[in-house]
Each structure stands twice: as structure tokens, then as C-alpha cells.
């Protein structure tokens, strides 16, 4: 923000977010005018891309649905090639308030951490997940905290800011699906520093969690497997 050489990019992964994408972009533009915005449209069937383009932001259109991991990675690849030093992940469904972005990028700009994760459970806001969801979130947070030997409270949060080192790393390697938890373990294994800051989040304006009850079992198994495989894998592979 202060340094003119600092280029900040907000990456918005979007899959059928026509109901919210316009408001999300508009609020980022007004609350975080220092940042550029890129929308990665993951093969939406609605007019997400048109609505985003109407707001004058860069829209990257996947030729077909590649999944959330590949969508985020496309954003990171774009950030790397366009010379951004900070990339912020903001969901297209409106649950990540634009006025909180500055809390995420501040530590990155100061060099306090390579990646900063916005946590819903550090006292700000009143996010109340269902019991099942809460249990899952807690389980992963405990597990990740144990692995990275640092207290993490919200490892499933997709509201994050990444510095240049992370942008570089994620461009080369990013988990395919349900990437939030796994990416933290990956970063830790490769020597990156991770930090959490308290943020307020909103209930979704439209759409619902990508994690339905039927998918949650797959989610748990997939993420646990990925974590344990990561632990026995050689570093930097």
C-alpha cells in the first residue's frame, strides 16, 4: 500500500456466482482500491463472467470446470506472471468482507509471515457453524496445529493473503480439491511461515458450501490422506 512497488492482487475463484460476484467486486473496489482484481471463472454455466467483466476486472475463463484447486492456482499463476507481490484469496460468494482484506495483507507486507490466514475463531465476529461442521473444522485445526507446531484455529478458511514466495510455490504446486488444509501442511513442509489473524466473516449471501453432507466424508478422507502422505513424502518434491 505504502510502497509504490507493491502490487496487490485479489484473486476471486468463481463457479456459478452470478448472484454475488457483482457485489463482491464492487465492495473490494471501494474498500481495497489499492488492489487489482482477477476473477477466475471455473466454467460457470451462468453469467458470472459477463457480470465480472462489466465491472472492468480481468476475467480468466477456464475452458471447462477444473475444480477449486486448479482455479486458485490459475490465479496464482496469473499473479506471478503479472508481477504481483501479494495475492489475496477472496471467495466469490460474499462471505469474505472486503474491509477485512487489509488485516490480511499487513503482516505479509511487513514480512511477518509468508502466508496469512483469516480466522473466524479468534474473537472477531460471530460465525456459528453447525455442530458437524464445527467438529470437522476443529479436528483439522488440531491436526494441523500438531503438525506445524503452531496454534491454528481455522485451517479451512479460504480467506488468505500470500506473499511472493508463496505465489511462486503455489504456481508450481497446489492441491486439486479441498485445498485449504492441505496447502498449509504443504507450505509448512517446505519451510514457509504461516500466521493467523482474526477476521470477521459473513453468512453467505447466496449459494451454499461446496461441502454437502455426502461430500464431507470424501472431504475428510481425502484431506487426511493428503496430510499423511505429505508427511512421509520427501521435501520439495
Amino acid at each position: 500500500m505504502e510502497d509504490p512497488k507493491t502490487k496487490i492482487l485479489v484473486i476471486i475463484p468463481a463457479f456459478n456466482e452470478a448472484g454475488t460476484i457483482g457485489d463482491v467486486i464492487a465492495s473490494i473496489k471501494s474498500m481495497a482500491p489499492y488492489a487489482d482484481i482477477v476473477v477466475v471463472n471455473d466454467g460457470s454455466g451462468d453469467d458470472t463472467a459477463e457480470l465480472a467483466e462489466r465491472q472492468g476486472v480481468v476475467v480468466l475463463n477456464h475452458p471447462y470446470n477444473l475444480g477449486i484447486g486448479a482455479t486458485m492456482q490459475t490465479g496464482y499463476k496469473y499473479a506471478l506472471r503479472s508481477g504481483y507481490n501479494v495475492a489475496v484469496q477472496v471467495d466469490g460468494d460474499g462471505q469474505h468482507p472486503a474491509d477485512q482484506i487489509r488485516f490480511l495483507i499487513e503482516p505479509v507486507l511487513k514480512g511477518a509471515a509468508d502466508i496469512v490466514v483469516g480466522s473466524r475463531f479468534l474473537g472477531v465476529g460471530q460465525y456459528r457453524p453447525s455442530i458437524a461442521r464445527h467438529t470437522g473444522i476443529m479436528l483439522f485445526s488440531r491436526l494441523v496445529s500438531m503438525i506445524i507446531k503452531e496454534k491454528m484455529t481455522d485451517t479451512t478458511s479460504g480467506f488468505r493473503a500470500a506473499g511472493l514466495k508463496c505465489i511462486n510455490f503455489f504456481s508450481a504446486r497446489y492441491p486439486d480439491d479441498y485445498p485449504e488444509v492441505e496447502s498449509l501442511v504443504l507450505l509448512h513442509r517446505n519451510g514457509f511461515s504461516i500466521m493467523e489473524v482474526p477476521v470477521r466473516m459473513q453468512e453467505r449471501i447466496s449459494g451454499h458450501s461446496s461441502i454437502t453432507p455426502t461430500k464431507s466424508l470424501y472431504y475428510m478422507i481425502k484431506v487426511l490422506l493428503a496430510i499423511f502422505v505429505n508427511l512421509i513424502k520427501k521435501k520439495n518434491v
Binding site: 476475467v59 480468466l60 477456464h62 477444473l66 499463476k77 506472471r81
Partner: peptide, 13 residues
């Protein structure tokens, strides 16, 4: 295939 699709996306832009 993923890498190819991502490259195509960035190139198209």
C-alpha cells in the same frame, strides 16, 4: 491436462 487448460486460460487472456 490441468496445466494445459490453465496455460490456455492465461494465453486467452
Amino acid at each position: 491436462n490441468k496445466i494445459l487448460a490453465q496455460e490456455m486460460t492465461l494465453l486467452k487472456n
